[in-house]
Amino acid sequence: MPKPIPVPDALSKPFWDAVNQRRLVLQTCTACNRHQYPPEPACAQCHSAQHLEWQPAKEPVRGRIYGYCVMHDSRLIPLHEDQPFNIAVIKLEEDPELLFLSHLPGTPPDQVPVGATVEIYFEELKLAPGRLIHEWRVVS
């Protein structure tokens, strides 16, 4: 699908750089031993930015489908030709408090196996060939 091109900012650039290298990194407060996604300027728990660093997610990077809806009328007109499509919420296996959105490529609309395991992969952006975005697909 023609997803829009994410514009990295200073805070998120390491994340998108890693995605473009087919890696998932997680912003982590080493003082609290706590991950954050999306990244924040400070740790939401200790409110300090001093101990924030980027750590690689544990391989294989997997999650479970927490829930979903089926989009029939997206704000993004380039996506309309692919409607209806799934938007699933993925709970990261390594830290289930972290939620990611996914179109679940390969899973027909409205046939989302809630609770199933998914694995990350990196999709090339149609609107920016060579650039990647993180996505998830069902593995079991």
């Binding site: 997206s74 704000r75 996914s102």
Partner: peptide
């Protein structure tokens, strides 16, 4: 836009409403 910035890139980028 073809691009998406700010917090929206973590959600709206997937076509949410």
């Amino acid at each position: 836009e073809d691009t998406i910035a700010g917090r929206a890139k973590w959600t709206t980028g997937w076509g949410t409403v």
